[in-house]
Design a protein around this nucleic acid. Sequence first.
DNA 1: GTCTATAAGATGATAGAC
DNA 2: GTCTATCATCTTATAGAC
Lengths: 194, 194
Amino acid sequence: MKRVATDNPTQDKILDVAERLVQMRGFNGFSYADVADTLGIRKPSIHHHFPSKSKLGERLVARYTERFMEALAGIRGGSATARLRRYAELYRKVLRDSDGERMCLCGMMAAEVGTLPHGVRKRIQEFFDRNEEWLADLLDTGRRAGQLQFRDAPRDAARRTVSSLEGAMLVARAHQDPARFERHIAGLLADLKP
Amino acid sequence: MKRVATDNPTQDKILDVAERLVQMRGFNGFSYADVADTLGIRKPSIHHHFPSKSKLGERLVARYTERFMEALAGIRGGSATARLRRYAELYRKVLRDSDGERMCLCGMMAAEVGTLPHGVRKRIQEFFDRNEEWLADLLDTGRRAGQLQFRDAPRDAARRTVSSLEGAMLVARAHQDPARFERHIAGLLADLKP
DNA sequence: GTCTATAAGATGATAGAC
DNA sequence: GTCTATCATCTTATAGAC
Protein backbone atom coordinates (compact mmCIF):
# COMPACT_ATOMS: atom_id res chain seq x y z
CA MET A 1 0.00 0.00 0.00
CA LYS A 2 1.44 3.34 -1.03
CA ARG A 3 1.99 5.84 1.72
CA VAL A 4 0.47 9.11 0.73
CA ALA A 5 1.65 11.09 3.73
CA THR A 6 4.62 10.04 5.84
CA ASP A 7 6.02 6.91 7.46
CA ASN A 8 5.41 8.50 10.83
CA PRO A 9 2.15 7.60 12.58
CA THR A 10 2.15 10.66 14.85
CA GLN A 11 2.64 13.00 11.91
CA ASP A 12 -0.21 11.29 10.12
CA LYS A 13 -2.49 11.69 13.12
CA ILE A 14 -1.62 15.37 13.39
CA LEU A 15 -2.32 15.86 9.70
CA ASP A 16 -5.63 13.98 10.01
CA VAL A 17 -6.84 16.13 12.89
CA ALA A 18 -5.58 19.37 11.38
CA GLU A 19 -7.17 18.53 8.04
CA ARG A 20 -10.53 18.00 9.65
CA LEU A 21 -10.24 21.24 11.61
CA VAL A 22 -9.32 23.24 8.53
CA GLN A 23 -12.21 21.77 6.57
CA MET A 24 -14.61 22.68 9.36
CA ARG A 25 -13.21 25.95 10.73
CA GLY A 26 -10.56 27.15 8.29
CA PHE A 27 -6.82 27.48 8.57
CA ASN A 28 -7.21 30.62 10.67
CA GLY A 29 -9.91 28.98 12.74
CA PHE A 30 -7.86 26.37 14.53
CA SER A 31 -4.71 26.39 16.67
CA TYR A 32 -1.97 23.99 17.71
CA ALA A 33 -3.77 23.76 21.04
CA ASP A 34 -6.85 22.31 19.31
CA VAL A 35 -4.80 19.62 17.63
CA ALA A 36 -2.88 18.84 20.82
CA ASP A 37 -6.07 18.55 22.88
CA THR A 38 -7.71 16.25 20.35
CA LEU A 39 -4.71 13.93 20.27
CA GLY A 40 -4.02 14.11 24.01
CA ILE A 41 -0.50 15.42 23.55
CA ARG A 42 1.18 18.80 24.16
CA LYS A 43 1.68 21.70 21.81
CA PRO A 44 5.48 21.41 21.60
CA SER A 45 5.07 17.87 20.30
CA ILE A 46 3.19 19.29 17.34
CA HIS A 47 5.95 21.82 16.79
CA HIS A 48 8.46 18.97 16.81
CA HIS A 49 6.76 17.47 13.75
CA PHE A 50 5.65 20.72 12.12
CA PRO A 51 7.89 23.58 13.30
CA SER A 52 5.61 26.30 11.98
CA LYS A 53 1.96 26.53 11.08
CA SER A 54 2.97 27.56 7.57
CA LYS A 55 4.81 24.28 7.09
CA LEU A 56 1.83 22.40 8.43
CA GLY A 57 -0.36 24.24 5.95
CA GLU A 58 1.87 23.35 3.04
CA ARG A 59 1.89 19.71 4.02
CA LEU A 60 -1.87 19.65 4.45
CA VAL A 61 -2.51 21.00 0.98
CA ALA A 62 0.16 18.77 -0.55
CA ARG A 63 -1.28 15.64 1.03
CA TYR A 64 -4.85 16.54 0.16
CA THR A 65 -3.90 17.20 -3.46
CA GLU A 66 -1.85 14.02 -3.68
CA ARG A 67 -4.73 11.91 -2.40
CA PHE A 68 -7.20 13.63 -4.66
CA MET A 69 -4.99 12.94 -7.67
CA GLU A 70 -4.71 9.31 -6.68
CA ALA A 71 -8.48 9.10 -6.55
CA LEU A 72 -8.66 10.69 -10.01
CA ALA A 73 -6.16 8.17 -11.32
CA GLY A 74 -8.50 5.46 -10.04
CA ILE A 75 -11.38 6.70 -12.19
CA ARG A 76 -10.91 4.68 -15.35
CA GLY A 77 -13.61 2.28 -16.54
CA GLY A 78 -17.00 3.14 -18.00
CA SER A 79 -18.36 5.92 -20.15
CA ALA A 80 -17.34 9.56 -19.87
CA THR A 81 -20.68 10.16 -18.17
CA ALA A 82 -19.96 7.49 -15.60
CA ARG A 83 -16.50 8.86 -14.94
CA LEU A 84 -17.88 12.37 -14.61
CA ARG A 85 -20.35 11.06 -12.08
CA ARG A 86 -17.54 9.45 -10.12
CA TYR A 87 -15.64 12.71 -10.22
CA ALA A 88 -18.56 14.60 -8.71
CA GLU A 89 -18.90 11.79 -6.19
CA LEU A 90 -15.45 12.68 -4.86
CA TYR A 91 -16.70 16.11 -3.91
CA ARG A 92 -20.01 14.85 -2.65
CA LYS A 93 -18.26 12.45 -0.33
CA VAL A 94 -16.47 15.24 1.53
CA LEU A 95 -19.68 16.97 2.47
CA ARG A 96 -21.81 13.88 3.03
CA ASP A 97 -19.32 11.94 5.16
CA SER A 98 -19.08 14.88 7.54
CA ASP A 99 -22.84 15.45 7.60
CA GLY A 100 -22.46 18.78 5.85
CA GLU A 101 -19.83 20.16 8.19
CA ARG A 102 -16.67 19.86 6.13
CA MET A 103 -15.88 21.33 2.77
CA CYS A 104 -13.02 20.86 0.31
CA LEU A 105 -9.75 21.72 2.06
CA CYS A 106 -8.54 23.76 -0.90
CA GLY A 107 -11.86 25.52 -1.34
CA MET A 108 -11.71 26.56 2.29
CA MET A 109 -8.12 27.74 2.06
CA ALA A 110 -8.85 29.51 -1.23
CA ALA A 111 -11.09 31.81 0.80
CA GLU A 112 -8.28 32.46 3.28
CA VAL A 113 -5.68 32.99 0.60
CA GLY A 114 -5.25 36.65 1.60
CA THR A 115 -3.68 35.61 4.90
CA LEU A 116 -1.70 32.56 3.78
CA PRO A 117 2.04 32.36 3.03
CA HIS A 118 3.00 32.25 -0.64
CA GLY A 119 4.08 28.62 -0.59
CA VAL A 120 0.63 27.56 0.55
CA ARG A 121 -1.08 29.82 -1.97
CA LYS A 122 0.77 28.26 -4.88
CA ARG A 123 -0.12 24.77 -3.77
CA ILE A 124 -3.78 25.69 -3.60
CA GLN A 125 -3.65 27.03 -7.14
CA GLU A 126 -2.00 23.79 -8.17
CA PHE A 127 -4.90 21.77 -6.75
CA PHE A 128 -7.36 23.59 -8.96
CA ASP A 129 -5.08 23.51 -11.99
CA ARG A 130 -4.62 19.76 -11.79
CA ASN A 131 -8.34 19.21 -11.27
CA GLU A 132 -9.13 21.33 -14.29
CA GLU A 133 -6.55 19.58 -16.41
CA TRP A 134 -7.89 16.13 -15.56
CA LEU A 135 -11.48 17.18 -16.08
CA ALA A 136 -10.77 19.00 -19.36
CA ASP A 137 -9.34 15.78 -20.74
CA LEU A 138 -12.41 13.82 -19.64
CA LEU A 139 -14.80 16.37 -21.10
CA ASP A 140 -12.90 16.45 -24.37
CA THR A 141 -12.92 12.66 -24.67
CA GLY A 142 -16.59 12.48 -23.75
CA ARG A 143 -17.64 15.08 -26.29
CA ARG A 144 -15.64 13.42 -29.08
CA ALA A 145 -17.40 10.17 -28.21
CA GLY A 146 -20.77 11.88 -28.35
CA GLN A 147 -21.39 11.14 -24.68
CA LEU A 148 -21.14 14.69 -23.40
CA GLN A 149 -22.19 18.05 -24.69
CA PHE A 150 -20.94 21.58 -24.04
CA ARG A 151 -20.38 24.63 -26.18
CA ASP A 152 -16.92 26.01 -25.54
CA ALA A 153 -13.38 24.70 -25.07
CA PRO A 154 -12.91 21.70 -22.75
CA ARG A 155 -10.63 23.78 -20.52
CA ASP A 156 -13.27 26.46 -20.04
CA ALA A 157 -15.99 23.91 -19.38
CA ALA A 158 -13.69 22.16 -16.91
CA ARG A 159 -12.97 25.38 -15.06
CA ARG A 160 -16.64 26.16 -14.92
CA THR A 161 -17.38 22.71 -13.52
CA VAL A 162 -14.70 22.80 -10.83
CA SER A 163 -15.69 26.31 -9.74
CA SER A 164 -19.30 25.30 -9.73
CA LEU A 165 -18.64 22.30 -7.47
CA GLU A 166 -16.59 24.38 -5.07
CA GLY A 167 -19.22 27.09 -4.91
CA ALA A 168 -22.08 24.66 -4.46
CA MET A 169 -20.23 23.03 -1.60
CA LEU A 170 -19.65 26.41 0.00
CA VAL A 171 -23.29 27.44 -0.19
CA ALA A 172 -24.76 24.03 0.71
CA ARG A 173 -22.54 23.88 3.78
CA ALA A 174 -23.58 27.40 4.80
CA HIS A 175 -27.13 26.06 4.77
CA GLN A 176 -26.08 22.83 6.52
CA ASP A 177 -27.86 21.09 3.69
CA PRO A 178 -25.90 18.38 1.82
CA ALA A 179 -29.01 17.58 -0.26
CA ARG A 180 -28.67 20.97 -1.87
CA PHE A 181 -25.25 19.97 -3.12
CA GLU A 182 -26.56 16.69 -4.48
CA ARG A 183 -29.22 18.48 -6.47
CA HIS A 184 -26.54 20.76 -7.82
CA ILE A 185 -24.54 17.78 -9.05
CA ALA A 186 -27.61 16.28 -10.67
CA GLY A 187 -28.24 19.53 -12.53
CA LEU A 188 -24.61 19.80 -13.61
CA LEU A 189 -24.61 16.28 -15.02
CA ALA A 190 -27.91 16.83 -16.78
CA ASP A 191 -26.56 19.96 -18.44
CA LEU A 192 -23.64 18.03 -19.87
CA LYS A 193 -25.86 15.32 -21.34
CA PRO A 194 -26.37 15.57 -25.11
CA MET B 1 -30.97 59.43 -0.77
CA LYS B 2 -31.81 56.40 1.31
CA ARG B 3 -29.36 55.53 4.04
CA VAL B 4 -28.46 51.90 3.78
CA ALA B 5 -26.30 51.75 6.87
CA THR B 6 -26.63 54.23 9.75
CA ASP B 7 -26.88 57.97 10.26
CA ASN B 8 -23.53 57.88 12.03
CA PRO B 9 -20.48 58.67 9.89
CA THR B 10 -18.02 56.94 12.23
CA GLN B 11 -20.05 53.75 12.26
CA ASP B 12 -20.19 53.84 8.48
CA LYS B 13 -16.43 54.26 8.25
CA ILE B 14 -15.90 51.34 10.62
CA LEU B 15 -18.25 49.19 8.56
CA ASP B 16 -16.51 50.23 5.34
CA VAL B 17 -13.07 49.31 6.63
CA ALA B 18 -14.24 46.10 8.27
CA GLU B 19 -16.12 45.07 5.15
CA ARG B 20 -13.02 45.47 3.02
CA LEU B 21 -10.93 43.52 5.53
CA VAL B 22 -13.43 40.66 5.68
CA GLN B 23 -13.60 40.47 1.91
CA MET B 24 -9.81 40.30 1.69
CA ARG B 25 -8.81 38.35 4.79
CA GLY B 26 -11.96 36.84 6.25
CA PHE B 27 -13.88 37.55 9.44
CA ASN B 28 -11.30 35.57 11.43
CA GLY B 29 -8.47 37.27 9.57
CA PHE B 30 -8.89 40.79 10.88
CA SER B 31 -9.07 42.41 14.31
CA TYR B 32 -10.38 45.55 15.94
CA ALA B 33 -6.77 46.74 15.97
CA ASP B 34 -6.65 46.56 12.16
CA VAL B 35 -9.78 48.69 11.85
CA ALA B 36 -8.57 51.16 14.48
CA ASP B 37 -5.17 51.55 12.82
CA THR B 38 -6.71 52.13 9.41
CA LEU B 39 -9.05 54.82 10.73
CA GLY B 40 -6.48 56.40 13.05
CA ILE B 41 -8.58 55.87 16.15
CA ARG B 42 -8.31 53.49 19.15
CA LYS B 43 -9.80 50.09 19.75
CA PRO B 44 -12.23 51.13 22.48
CA SER B 45 -13.81 53.59 20.07
CA ILE B 46 -14.71 50.68 17.83
CA HIS B 47 -16.18 48.84 20.82
CA HIS B 48 -18.26 51.90 21.60
CA HIS B 49 -20.00 51.55 18.23
CA PHE B 50 -19.90 47.76 17.97
CA PRO B 51 -19.61 46.25 21.48
CA SER B 52 -18.72 42.78 20.24
CA LYS B 53 -17.23 41.39 17.06
CA SER B 54 -20.33 39.24 16.65
CA LYS B 55 -22.52 42.33 16.50
CA LEU B 56 -20.16 43.86 13.99
CA GLY B 57 -20.41 40.69 11.92
CA GLU B 58 -24.19 40.77 11.92
CA ARG B 59 -24.24 44.38 10.88
CA LEU B 60 -21.73 43.74 8.11
CA VAL B 61 -23.77 40.95 6.57
CA ALA B 62 -27.03 42.87 7.01
CA ARG B 63 -25.67 45.96 5.30
CA TYR B 64 -24.07 43.98 2.49
CA THR B 65 -27.30 42.10 1.84
CA GLU B 66 -29.38 45.24 1.99
CA ARG B 67 -27.18 47.00 -0.55
CA PHE B 68 -27.11 43.97 -2.80
CA MET B 69 -30.89 43.79 -2.77
CA GLU B 70 -31.12 47.46 -3.61
CA ALA B 71 -28.85 46.85 -6.58
CA LEU B 72 -31.10 43.96 -7.66
CA ALA B 73 -34.15 46.18 -7.37
CA GLY B 74 -32.40 48.55 -9.75
CA ILE B 75 -32.12 45.90 -12.46
CA ARG B 76 -35.32 46.44 -14.41
CA GLY B 77 -35.19 47.42 -18.07
CA GLY B 78 -34.18 45.28 -21.04
CA SER B 79 -34.43 41.64 -21.93
CA ALA B 80 -33.97 38.79 -19.48
CA THR B 81 -30.55 38.23 -21.03
CA ALA B 82 -29.59 41.83 -20.41
CA ARG B 83 -30.80 41.69 -16.82
CA LEU B 84 -28.92 38.46 -16.27
CA ARG B 85 -25.80 40.12 -17.58
CA ARG B 86 -26.30 42.99 -15.17
CA TYR B 87 -26.74 40.52 -12.34
CA ALA B 88 -23.43 38.84 -13.13
CA GLU B 89 -21.89 42.29 -13.44
CA LEU B 90 -22.66 42.86 -9.77
CA TYR B 91 -20.42 39.96 -8.82
CA ARG B 92 -17.80 40.85 -11.37
CA LYS B 93 -17.55 44.35 -9.95
CA VAL B 94 -16.51 43.10 -6.52
CA LEU B 95 -13.51 41.25 -7.87
CA ARG B 96 -12.54 43.71 -10.58
CA ASP B 97 -12.77 46.88 -8.48
CA SER B 98 -10.39 45.36 -5.94
CA ASP B 99 -8.02 44.04 -8.60
CA GLY B 100 -8.84 40.46 -7.72
CA GLU B 101 -8.24 40.84 -4.00
CA ARG B 102 -11.76 40.94 -2.59
CA MET B 103 -14.52 38.42 -2.91
CA CYS B 104 -18.21 38.43 -2.02
CA LEU B 105 -18.56 39.16 1.72
CA CYS B 106 -21.10 36.39 2.16
CA GLY B 107 -19.11 33.90 0.11
CA MET B 108 -16.13 34.55 2.34
CA MET B 109 -18.15 34.24 5.52
CA ALA B 110 -19.88 31.14 4.19
CA ALA B 111 -16.48 29.46 4.35
CA GLU B 112 -16.03 30.59 7.95
CA VAL B 113 -19.51 29.57 8.98
CA GLY B 114 -18.15 26.87 11.32
CA THR B 115 -16.73 29.56 13.62
CA LEU B 116 -19.46 32.17 13.37
CA PRO B 117 -22.27 32.87 15.86
CA HIS B 118 -25.72 31.65 14.88
CA GLY B 119 -27.11 35.10 14.23
CA VAL B 120 -24.46 35.72 11.61
CA ARG B 121 -24.93 32.30 10.05
CA LYS B 122 -28.63 32.85 9.51
CA ARG B 123 -28.02 36.20 7.86
CA ILE B 124 -25.55 34.63 5.47
CA GLN B 125 -28.08 31.99 4.49
CA GLU B 126 -30.58 34.75 3.93
CA PHE B 127 -28.25 36.48 1.48
CA PHE B 128 -28.12 33.38 -0.69
CA ASP B 129 -31.83 32.69 -0.35
CA ARG B 130 -32.79 36.15 -1.48
CA ASN B 131 -30.35 36.02 -4.37
CA GLU B 132 -31.76 32.71 -5.49
CA GLU B 133 -35.31 33.93 -5.21
CA TRP B 134 -34.65 37.00 -7.30
CA LEU B 135 -32.73 35.04 -9.91
CA ALA B 136 -35.29 32.23 -10.10
CA ASP B 137 -37.91 34.78 -10.99
CA LEU B 138 -35.72 36.28 -13.69
CA LEU B 139 -34.88 32.86 -15.15
CA ASP B 140 -38.51 31.85 -15.15
CA THR B 141 -39.60 35.03 -16.90
CA GLY B 142 -36.77 34.73 -19.40
CA ARG B 143 -37.57 31.17 -20.30
CA ARG B 144 -41.27 31.88 -20.73
CA ALA B 145 -40.31 34.70 -23.09
CA GLY B 146 -38.05 32.37 -25.07
CA GLN B 147 -35.00 34.46 -24.15
CA LEU B 148 -33.35 31.95 -21.87
CA GLN B 149 -32.98 28.19 -21.88
CA PHE B 150 -32.40 25.66 -19.10
CA ARG B 151 -33.70 22.21 -18.34
CA ASP B 152 -34.92 22.06 -14.76
CA ALA B 153 -36.90 24.21 -12.35
CA PRO B 154 -36.05 27.94 -12.19
CA ARG B 155 -35.20 27.56 -8.50
CA ASP B 156 -32.66 24.84 -9.20
CA ALA B 157 -31.13 26.73 -12.10
CA ALA B 158 -30.95 29.83 -9.92
CA ARG B 159 -29.19 27.96 -7.13
CA ARG B 160 -26.77 26.52 -9.60
CA THR B 161 -26.03 29.96 -10.99
CA VAL B 162 -25.47 31.62 -7.63
CA SER B 163 -23.24 28.78 -6.42
CA SER B 164 -21.35 28.85 -9.66
CA LEU B 165 -20.69 32.58 -9.38
CA GLU B 166 -19.53 32.26 -5.78
CA GLY B 167 -17.24 29.35 -6.62
CA ALA B 168 -15.78 31.01 -9.68
CA MET B 169 -15.00 34.07 -7.60
CA LEU B 170 -13.32 31.94 -4.97
CA VAL B 171 -11.12 30.12 -7.47
CA ALA B 172 -10.34 33.15 -9.64
CA ARG B 173 -9.25 35.09 -6.58
CA ALA B 174 -7.05 32.22 -5.41
CA HIS B 175 -5.32 32.56 -8.78
CA GLN B 176 -5.30 36.37 -8.51
CA ASP B 177 -6.87 36.30 -11.94
CA PRO B 178 -10.09 38.32 -12.42
CA ALA B 179 -10.07 37.43 -16.13
CA ARG B 180 -10.76 33.84 -15.18
CA PHE B 181 -13.97 34.98 -13.52
CA GLU B 182 -15.01 36.99 -16.55
CA ARG B 183 -14.59 33.95 -18.80
CA HIS B 184 -16.70 32.00 -16.35
CA ILE B 185 -19.50 34.54 -16.62
CA ALA B 186 -19.29 34.47 -20.40
CA GLY B 187 -19.65 30.68 -20.37
CA LEU B 188 -22.54 30.82 -17.93
CA LEU B 189 -24.46 33.31 -20.07
CA ALA B 190 -23.76 31.34 -23.23
CA ASP B 191 -25.13 28.19 -21.61
CA LEU B 192 -28.38 29.94 -20.79
CA LYS B 193 -28.85 31.18 -24.33
CA PRO B 194 -31.45 29.24 -26.35
C1' DG C 1 9.87 12.10 20.63
C1' DT C 2 7.52 14.04 24.39
C1' DC C 3 7.33 16.81 28.19
C1' DT C 4 7.38 21.46 31.48
C1' DA C 5 8.17 26.09 31.46
C1' DT C 6 8.06 30.21 29.35
C1' DA C 7 8.24 33.90 26.21
C1' DA C 8 6.41 37.79 23.16
C1' DG C 9 2.76 39.35 20.93
C1' DA C 10 -2.11 39.52 19.52
C1' DT C 11 -7.02 39.44 20.64
C1' DG C 12 -11.66 40.70 22.24
C1' DA C 13 -13.22 43.28 25.78
C1' DT C 14 -13.99 46.61 30.05
C1' DA C 15 -13.40 50.63 33.51
C1' DG C 16 -13.28 55.08 33.97
C1' DA C 17 -11.23 59.92 32.89
C1' DC C 18 -11.96 63.76 29.67
C1' DG D 1 -17.67 59.86 21.54
C1' DT D 2 -12.90 59.22 22.22
C1' DC D 3 -9.22 58.40 24.95
C1' DT D 4 -5.54 55.79 28.40
C1' DA D 5 -4.90 51.93 31.04
C1' DT D 6 -5.59 47.42 31.85
C1' DC D 7 -7.40 42.56 31.57
C1' DA D 8 -7.64 37.61 30.80
C1' DT D 9 -6.95 34.68 27.35
C1' DC D 10 -5.17 32.75 23.28
C1' DT D 11 -1.53 32.09 19.73
C1' DT D 12 2.69 30.74 17.64
C1' DA D 13 6.94 29.48 18.97
C1' DT D 14 11.45 28.22 21.67
C1' DA D 15 14.69 26.31 25.41
C1' DG D 16 15.98 22.63 27.64
C1' DA D 17 15.01 18.42 30.82
C1' DC D 18 13.76 13.49 30.51
